[in-house]
Every structure is written in C-alpha cells, then in structure tokens.
C-alpha cells in the first residue's frame, strides 16, 4: 500500500478519515508495552521455569527460550499477574522510569 502505515502518520491531517485502520493485521505492530507503569523483572536464579507465568499472562508477553522464560516488554502491559502467580517469588514489579 502506497500510503504510509497508520503508525507512521503523525499529524492530524495525515490520519485516515473516519479513524479507520486501512490495512489488516496491524495489532502486531501496535506496541502495547508503553501502557506499563511497572515492569516485571525475572530473577533467573530463583526461576524454576515452571511456566505458570507463561500460562497466566493475558497478553502472551511471556516467551519461552531454550533456557528460561523472558518478558517481551514491547507487549507486556505490566498487569503483575505473573508476579502474583509465581510460586517461587522470582518476579518483582519495578516502577518504570518517568
């Protein structure tokens, strides 16, 4: 599509009329991580890789790696459910810098 993507449009005159999103599948590019006020930080020493946080995360922002889980901060909204569910208290919620 020749017009710039919605996420590159900056000024009000450049936004698509009617506020429509003129192309499909754009939520992949919508970084919801900037909603976050506190970020989950995983202590890899304590983590047992039980994957409860991976199951509970409502945004699928916990990712599995060959070793242990990690947080995808581009999509993590900072709800804190992972920290609450972690059975070994390996996740702490840390205030984002302003």
């Amino acid at each position: 599509m020749s017009t710039p993507s919605l996420f590159e449009r900056r000024f009000w005159k450049d936004l698509p009329p009617g506020g429509i999103i003129p192309e499909p599948g754009t939520s992949v590019r919508y970084r919801t991580g900037d909603w976050r006020t506190r970020r989950p930080v995983i202590d890899e020493q304590k983590c047992t890789n039980c994957l409860l946080c991976w199951i509970y995360c409502p945004d699928a922002a916990i990712e599995q790696t060959p070793k242990k889980v990690r947080v995808n901060y581009e999509y993590c909204k900072g709800c804190g459910i992972c920290a609450n569910e972690c059975p070994v208290k390996a996740i702490t919620m840390v205030m984002e810098a302003i």
Binding site: P17, I20, I21, P22, P24
Partner: peptide, 15 residues
C-alpha cells in the same frame, strides 16, 4: 465512498 467494507480488502472501523 471514502472507504468501504469489503472482505477482499479488510479494514478496521470504529477501532
């Protein structure tokens, strides 16, 4: 029309 609902060219309305 400025834009239309068309299954072959999906858009999001009222996002």
């Amino acid at each position: 029309p400025l834009y239309t609902l068309d299954p072959s060219k999906p858009i999001t309305v009222g996002a």
